[in-house]
Simulated scan of single mutants.
Amino acid sequence: MRGNIPIPELPRGEDVWIMVVVTSVRDRRTQQGKRFCDALALNATGSIALKIWSEVLDACKEIHPGLWGLTGRLDNYQDRPQFVVAEYRPITIEQYREHQGVDPVLPLAYTMDIETLALPDFRERVGLQLERTMRLGNMRLEQQQRYLEDIAAEEERCYQLGALSATSGRIVCLAVHVGPVPELEIEGVEHNQSEHVFGIDADGYEEDEKRALTGFLNLLKDFDPDTDEIVGHNILSFDLPFIFQRCLVNNIRVQPFIDLSEFHVRGVFDTMHHWWLGSKRFVSLDDIAWALGIESSKTAEAEGSKVFEMYQADKLAQIREYNLNDVRVTRRIYERMVACFGR
């Protein structure tokens, strides 16, 4: 039996053996109730989906994330390659290094958060929009009351809300923590962690949005949605679309590395969705942190609703630190969720 073949070069329909890091395992059931596992694995040459049927699971010990030697053959499922496992056994770090020639490649979690502001030019546009909405009778009753009581105040309120849309807002700060995926620790392999901030530098000076976006994209240039994860709170509905929409506005040529049209979006862990077990309901990051006993990222001076005020007061360093603290809190919530619910 041939073995140690690079994953992209695996032959179809031929029994082979490979050494991999299994990064995730999910129990499934067939329509007849038989257990099987879908798993993901990678090594220095690439990544591959695994299928482990009940007969193999019954014959071998329980499989979990870690280092494994696999035998089986490459097949196709829904036009995607998968490795159908015939046998698996745990291997040591020394065995892996001997055959791969390098340390195991471990999946990474990119925990991120963005802070946004309304575009200066939107201030003029918002007044015209409100006037037109009022004239056409399309304004909600409560907004009509605010508008008629104080037009300038309602215009200012709507202007600041422009930060929530990529058509009227921009990214002022984007923070990312890069670290290992929780619950996947291999003895003898270093687990490096790092923090990165784009948009506001370490000295508190603002950077151009296009430069910030380019820096972020460069950080994630090796992101693999089949093994790595982008982590954040409400990132499926807000942060990720906003980032790529602003790439479009800034004429940055990029192929989005996630597909939000998928039913289960590969490579994304949204803590808000996981709190609701996949349901698209809202809960704030601060409320989850409080429930889990995690110190809030909010302070009397810094929170999301005060970013505009902080920016006007030239407190860019405080915005940067608040953005980072949001990411740190999100990372801790992510670790707790993975420890309790799995991936």
Rank of each mutant, 00 (worst) to 15 (best):
G3P: 10
G3N: 04
D27F: 11
R28L: 14
Q31S: 15
K34V: 07
T45E: 02
I52L: 11
V56A: 08
T71S: 14
G72S: 04
G72P: 05
Q78S: 13
Q82L: 11
V85N: 04
E98G: 01
E98W: 12
P104L: 02
V105N: 09
P107G: 03
P107N: 04
R123E: 13
R123N: 03
V126M: 02
N138L: 13
N138A: 13
I151G: 04
E156A: 12
C158R: 12
Y159M: 03
Y159Q: 05
Q160M: 06
Q160Y: 13
L164T: 06
G169F: 00
C173Y: 09
V178I: 12
P180R: 13
L184C: 06
H191C: 10
I200Y: 05
D203Y: 11
E209H: 00
L213T: 02
P225M: 01
D226H: 09
D228F: 02
I230G: 01
G232N: 01
H233G: 07
N234E: 00
I235V: 06
P241I: 00
V249Y: 00
R253Q: 12
D259Q: 07
V268H: 08
T271K: 05
L277E: 15
L277P: 05
G278K: 13
R281N: 12
F282V: 06
A291H: 14
G293M: 08
A300Y: 12
E301I: 09
E303Y: 15
S305D: 14
S305P: 05
E309I: 08
Y311S: 09
R328F: 11
V338F: 12
